[in-house]
Design a protein around this nucleic acid. Structure first.
Lengths: 347, 347
DNA sequence: CTCTTCTATGAAAACGTTTTCAGAAGTCTT
DNA sequence: AAGACTTCTGAAAACGTTTTCATAGAAGAG
């Protein structure tokens, strides 16, 4: 229908194809007359450039891909939105693919991105990512920025630009806080321990025990790979068990929900009978009664930093080489943590 | 680098360009020998087709755009994810743009989609969408499916394929339920009344009053256009006011959070002093103590139905013409609603 | 045996841009 | 006045596909 091409504009303006292209792209070497005529003809005809053709010729699509487990998870959604906003300002379009952490789908999506000549990628692979996966990603020279993951097994681990969240420091601070309140038996509930965030948190958790000199035998790790609603059942089992924890650190929204449900079912009052600390601050955490003490970091910053890092590469400006960003994690004190009851302390 | 093109494959297989294209696309008229040689050469060279070039020639990009206010809102995120999954299965790639309901950005995104020759679009414009906006969308003949919006002012209102949620029926059922419990002063808190979901809910709300013959003077509408955290302040004002409502219907997660916060601040017990009903079921609603009675509908179904409707158009199969889907809304009874205290009933 | 229909193939024309190249003017510099 | 730049311009060559077209041979019909 519309299909008004650069050729039509050239015809209307009475100049050549190349002149139109130059005029429209503000190139050098174009006379005032031509510039004016072309501009006029273009608007009169309602010319809209065809990005596809342009991309084919320039070998750059103006698109950036994003590999993420699931957009409907607000954690990812916020990151994506922030990244999208910044990339759009720079003239890029962000395409996100939800891969459910499935390596097959990650590979497929990455391939499609490359087939469409995407200019860059933001990736947060699942735990299935291995050596060859990373190698494949790097193949073809498309700039890649890693979102809170470790390119384990990839050559030049440290060379990958990445934006990382200081989960280690956060978890350590949270654990120290609970230890300081007098808790000794603290349980850490986490989903996939093979991925960076969980791994770092576990390390921080253990380091807090070590550094404060508290007997680490009270530290309990509860790890499961299906994240959805396992937490509720798990928490019940945990709380009914022999060495019942007096505090729980719940990693993620879904797990926090499970923990809170379990506590209610067992008629345990938070924080009297059980202290709860959420990793990640959500509406659920802040509105719940009692309000849940939480570790918080800025998802917007993650998205923004990732976009910045990528844009830097895209400009070919590897400037100074600050290729990784480490974002800090804050402990937001609220009402869900208190010293343990004495009877629970009686080892 | 890689840049292995169809020409290289042709050379390696000792056949012509066109034969390779035919062989690879499983076209008719290709001999067994050629098919074999080409396949072998292609895999040996690691040939990956260039979608850009293909798109340019075939005039179809294999991409579908999605206009939505904000991906980081889990309501939208879930829809997007479901749509993405179904479109991917059909060979399409979904690109979402967060427009913050800003008409300018909606227009810009739609233009970019068209400039990139997107094959179709899923759109949920904000309240700023007017006649010309809809007309522009329809321009160029790109198939468009509307997500829970009314193309008001657009020519052929009813001709737009759309997937709609029965907010009207849902709100009516919720209101009847509260009226049945004995509530007379019910407040409806909503954000942007100009958009379909809110508009339909308000209509259902009022219709419930009318149909049950209850004096509608107790019905209170509280409408505000900035959705974020206005609800808390508004709720406080409402509950301190002269004709304090005994029940609140809160539209959306953020508003629910605000209402619950306000209730806590005023030391009002739910549901004893105040019944709360959430429109939209979230973790917050189900985990909160007490658990919040909520209207629920399937976001996955919205995304899936939209994808189906669009795919139907893309196949050129306007089959039977069932061009709109109406999804039902359920009332999930939980603990946050109870009959009002007598003293509040004393008009 | 001839006339038609089918199958298989390669050459070449698209698709809509940007970019290279060569040349035509004009403007300096000597 | 002759070269040496500079500024502008259009023709044509890319970019990597798919698709049309013409042609050649094979197979089938009469």
């Amino acid at each position: 229908m519309a299909a008004v091409t650069i050729r039509d504009v050239a015809l209307a303006a009475g100049v050549s194809l190349s002149s139109v292209s130059r005029a429209l792209n503000g190139g050098k070497y174009v006379s005032a007359r031509v510039a004016h005529d072309v501009a006029q003809a273009a608007t009169r005809l309602g010319y809209k450039p065809d990005f596809l053709a342009r991309s084919l010729r320039t070998r750059s699509s103006g698109m950036v891909g994003c590999l993420v487990s699931d957009v409907s998870n607000p954690l990812n959604g916020s990151i994506v939105r922030a990244a999208e906003a910044h990339l759009r300002d720079a003239g890029y379009m962000l395409v996100v693919a939800s891969t459910a952490n499935d390596p097959t789908r990650e590979r497929a999506a990455a391939d499609e991105f490359k087939g469409r000549r995407f200019d860059g990628m933001l990736v947060a692979p699942g735990s299935g990512a291995n050596d060859s996966m990373w190698r494949e990603l790097a193949l073809g020279g498309t700039p890649v920025v890693v979102l809170d993951r470790d390119p384990i097994g990839a050559r030049d681990d440290s060379r990958w630009p990445a934006v990382l969240v200081d989960h280690h420091g956060g978890a350590k601070a949270a654990t120290r806080y609970l230890l300081g309140l007098g808790h000794r038996r603290i349980a850490l509930l986490t989903a996939d321990a093979r991925m960076r965030p969980s791994r770092e948190r576990i390390a921080g958790f253990q380091e807090a025990y070590a550094e404060t000199g508290v007997d680490p035998s009270g530290a309990q790790l509860c790890i499961q790979s299906t994240p959805m609603d396992f937490a509720q059942g798990d928490t019940v089992a945990l709380l009914r068990g022999e060495r019942r924890p007096t505090a729980i650190i719940a990693l993620g929204t879904r797990i926090l929900a499970g923990v809170l449900r379990a506590a209610r079912n067992l008629d345990l009052s938070v924080p009297r009978d059980l202290s709860v600390l959420s990793v990640g601050d959500t509406d659920l955490a802040s509105v719940h009664a009692p309000a849940i003490t939480a570790l918080r970091w800025s998802l917007e910053d993650v998205g923004r930093a990732a976009a910045e890092l990528l844009l830097q590469r895209l400009r070919g400006d590897f400037g100074g080489g600050q290729s990784r960003a480490l974002l800090e994690v804050d402990l937001v004190l609220r009402e869900s943590c208190a010293p343990p009851l004495l009877r629970s302390v009686q080892l």
